[in-house]
Amino acid sequence: MFLEDLNQNVSLLGFRRVIDTSDRWRHDDLAIEIQGICMGEDYLQDQKGIQIWEDVWQTRKAQVIHFLTALTKPLKSVFARDTRIVPISAEAARHFLDANHLMGFSKGALYVGCVVPPHRQFRGIGSEFSWEGNPLVAVAVFGKPLVMKEAGLEGELSGELIKLATLPSIRLVGGITKFLDAYHAIHPVQNVMTYIDLDWNSGKGFLSIGFKVIEQTPPLFFKLVDGKRIAVTQNQDAEVWTKGNLKLRYYYAN
């Protein structure tokens, strides 16, 4: 049922099943591969394709489709210079991220939104989300700045980018940099770190603006309890596991 439902949806985006498989699809024009993984079945982890686990499809189907659509369809370009970064409430961030981020909302210390100010709304940039009457097109969650103890960075103030999501219908050109600059204006940190989930993202966009790879973390293991992922420490207890994460760090110029 899961694989057939996945097939029906991804075929509309130009994906075709790989010959002699029931759980792999490829977009020939874009050389993107995806794999659907049924719960409770052994599989060989493919480090190249996008993994779509059955439980994620069941709980975040709309978000997965939005994600794949953004990879395969032309998006409207919105330039960060036509927007403004402003602090928003946790409630507004939750509403936006639950709808637009693959993994939904996460708590943080600072919630900021990218809005289209009144004098730029003539460009026709719309959104079903808003903040103080202005279209809300992206949201980021940052953690509390911490004093580093890591060798070589002792005493430096470091921030964390926890979540970032944009409307699936747009490409926010310069958006990550604008969020980072806005965070730095509020908290004068020396660097910001973030994690990239390798199940979904290679981190290419972050690396292109100056993030550096610090390490690749090992896979995370989970079991399902009432349809929710619960972390486990023993591999043999796992029903779901990830490819791990890339730990990235962005250093602000002195």
Results as ranks from 00 to 15, higher is better:
Met1Thr: 14
Ala182Asn: 03
Ile50Ala: 05
Tyr111Pro: 04
Val10Ser: 03
Leu13Pro: 07
Ser208Thr: 14
Glu154Ala: 11
Leu167Lys: 05
Gly133Asn: 09
Tyr250Lys: 05
Ile52Asn: 06
Leu172Ser: 04
Arg60His: 08
Gln45Met: 13
Leu207Glu: 09
Lys73Cys: 06
Val112Ser: 02
Gly108Ser: 04
Ile37Asp: 02
Pro135Tyr: 11
Leu172His: 01
Ser158Trp: 07
Gln58Gly: 02
Ser202Ala: 11
Lys223Ile: 05
Asp29Phe: 06
Lys73Thr: 08
Arg229Val: 06
Arg16His: 07
Pro219Cys: 03
Leu75Tyr: 06
Leu30Ala: 00
Ile19Arg: 13
Ala151Asp: 08
Lys107Ile: 11
Ile125Gln: 07
Arg24Ala: 04
Phe105Cys: 04
Arg123Ala: 05
Ile34Cys: 07
Cys114Asn: 05
Gly175Asn: 06
Ala109Phe: 13
Phe222Trp: 00
Gln58Phe: 08
Ala185Glu: 15
Ala31Arg: 09
Lys76Pro: 12
Ala62Asp: 14
Arg60Ile: 12
Gly205Asp: 15
Ala80Pro: 10
Arg60Cys: 08
Phe211Asn: 08
Val64Cys: 08
Glu132Asn: 06
Asp226Phe: 09
Met1Leu: 10
Leu3Trp: 01
Val64Asp: 00
Gln121Pro: 02
Leu30Gln: 02
Gly126Cys: 05
Arg24Phe: 01
Asp5Thr: 09
Thr72Gly: 05
Gln121Val: 02
Thr21His: 01
Phe15Met: 00
Thr217Trp: 12
Leu153Ser: 11
Lys247Ala: 13
Arg171His: 15
